[in-house]
Structure formats: C-alpha cells, structure tokens
C-alpha cells in the first residue's frame, strides 16, 4: 500500500526513528510501511494519522483497495 508518510515526515523535519518512537513501533516497521513492503494494522494506521493530525485516508493511499471493488 502506498503512503504519504515520507512527504509528511519531510514537511515536519521528522526522522523515521522519531516517528517510530512516537507511534510505538520500531524504525524498521516505519521503513517497511514507507516502501510498501508492510501494510500497517488499523490501530497503527490510526496512531500515525493522529500523530500527523490527519485522517487515515490522507496518510494512506487506498486506491488499490478501491480498484478491488
């Protein structure tokens, strides 16, 4: 799944480690989510979106899911 996390991090000058610590996962998890190797669970997606002050749809790209409908 594609995400807007790298752009959002860049805008806020935030490292992967800082974001990982803030949402309670390891840096490797954030890396995997950013490169699309791992899809975040709903609670983690919610925590990331809340951290950036956005909705889940603003952080994660659900176009793949919509194509499946």
């Amino acid at each position: 799944m594609k995400t807007h996390i790298p752009e959002l991090r860049r805008q806020r000058k935030l490292s992967q480690e800082e974001l990982a610590m803030a949402v309670g996962v390891t840096r490797q998890t954030i890396t995997s989510i950013e490169v699309g190797k791992y899809t975040a669970s709903l609670p983690l997606a919610y925590r990331i979106a809340r951290y950036f002050g956005l909705s889940i749809e603003d952080v994660f790209d659900f176009s793949d899911v919509e194509d499946m409908e």
């Binding site: 610590m21 309670g24 996962v25 390891t26 998890t29 995997s32 791992y38 975040a40 669970s41 983690l44």
Partner: peptide
Amino acid sequence: RKKMYISDTDERKRV
C-alpha cells in the same frame, strides 16, 4: 524500558 516495550510489541515483528 520504552525501547524494549516497543521491540516486544512491534506488530511487524509479530507478523
């Protein structure tokens, strides 16, 4: 302790 907690509960590690 926080680092250990994060490492223990990391969802990617569980997967």
